[in-house]
Write a protein that binds this DNA or RNA. Structure first.
Lengths: 243, 243
DNA sequence: TCGCGATTGTTATCCCGCTAACTTACAGGG
DNA sequence: CCCTGTAAGTTAGCGGGATAACAATCGCGA
């Protein structure tokens, strides 16, 4: 995400807040009591009436949609400092589900308040727009990927995105700071868990990633991109390595 | 779309403009000279540097993304009175392609101008936000559909959406006011044209839709929804009708 | 009215990924 | 330290769509 590259020295939280909180509201937010949610808890559910957004002061939250027959799909992931829950603004009802993937602390923000702030604060507004545009772009990217790419490609792309967003360098690898089950990955790329299992092993064999139970994923960021350009070569390399 | 249900009596254009133009800017827009683009022309392309949005004064425009190997995907469709082109706001570069599907007239609007307007005009701002939230929601819906539904279901869903957005009553049918080739439909649901051809014929056999070359599609809106709930029954009905 | 381009219709073949039904491995509590 | 729950790994079988290569129509201009 773009805003993570910004200066976070002093007003860390203000800036991190999707970049869209500044000045007065920011200070208010810092003092406001947060709501604690434990890992696995549902912050809101599909269809809940709502006129608010959430500021994630600390933790890790996933937004998911789920079908009538109970299948789940991960739409977005949110880290400390981000804002979520704006989707309902078109209907007044939650269109997704928010679930804490780790113990988290959130602050609920009334729409009126939020909007008033954006309207009076130009840079905040610009950052918010930019953020929303980015979300939309990302969604369209995913639609394209779902339409045209194989599950392997989707998986590799997603791993790359995760590395960019939640990765920290670790030797020549990039380590994901959060743990994702194969099930989670499957729900991100729209595929079965079993397939993800097989594909991850393939990638491991090719040396693109490493992982062991409960240990975070380790991956070679650059190799993943290279793989997307020429998967043929990469799999050839695998065959060669076999002898 | 929600805003089409609004009162369009006097300030038709102002209201229609994604609902986000009011007062001064609206009048300015009405007088500003528009740019004419002919059917098939590209308004902007992938990667173009940009700091603007477009107001579609008259016509019909599609936003598409395309892959490196030239495959195209339709992201959104825009009618007279809508605004498009805001995606670039996160990077300053066009992330999609805009193509006129009919002769159209557009007005380019500087970001600064657009944003200033939104900031000074609260209802306009609210409508814009609502509109964006709706776009995001729609994108997530499509991601879900792509992940879980068959091409037939995706097609029926899309036809329903098109009926809602571009349909006018015609006897007991709903007629689409724009012509879509099977290729277009295929690019909306992420499938092959051949498959769409076959599926459309299936639906025609079942009496859910009617069409002939170059004639717009005619469809039974209610039946389409019913089909999504219980496709089994519907196909049973087909079998029965066969005898 | 003939011919050509664009659109739609049809079919045989192939393969990726879903399904289902497992086994294996690990982790933490009693 | 076993026991149980949870995550990961594996496989055979099947089917929906992609692919490719056509035929059939329609629209329109020469």
């Amino acid at each position: 995400m773009i805003h993570t590259a910004m200066n976070m020295a002093d007003h860390r939280h203000c800036v991190a807040l999707s970049g869209c909180f500044r000045g007065k509201l920011c200070e208010q937010l810092m003092n406001r009591p947060g709501q604690l949610v434990t890992k696995g808890a549902r912050i809101y559910g599909l269809g809940d009436p709502a006129q608010s957004v959430f500021y994630l002061r600390r933790g890790f939250v996933k937004l998911t949609s789920l079908t009538d027959d109970g299948r789940e799909l991960i739409l977005r992931l949110h880290q400390t400092g981000e804002v979520f829950g704006e989707l309902c603004h078109c209907t007044g009802e939650r269109r997704e589900q928010a679930i804490a993937m780790e113990d988290s602390e959130i602050v609920e923000l009334n729409f009126d308040e939020f909007i008033a702030h954006l309207q009076s604060n130009r840079p905040a507004f610009l950052l918010f727009l930019s953020n929303v545009a980015q979300q939309l772009s990302a969604a369209y990217d995913q639609i394209q990927t779902l339409s045209f790419n194989s599950t392997l490609e989707r998986l590799v792309r997603t791993l790359g995105r995760l590395a960019d967003e939640f990765g920290e360098p670790d030797g020549e690898w990039v380590r994901l700071t959060h743990y994702f089950r194969q099930d989670d990955l499957a729900q991100m790329i729209g595929a079965r868990r079993e397939v993800v299992s097989t594909l991850l092993n393939q990638l491991r064999d090719q040396g693109l990633i490493t992982y062991a139970r409960k240990d975070g994923l380790l991956l070679r960021r650059a190799e993943l991109d290279r793989f997307l350009v020429s998967p043929a070569q990469s799999s050839a390399r695998l065959t060669d390595a076999g002898f």
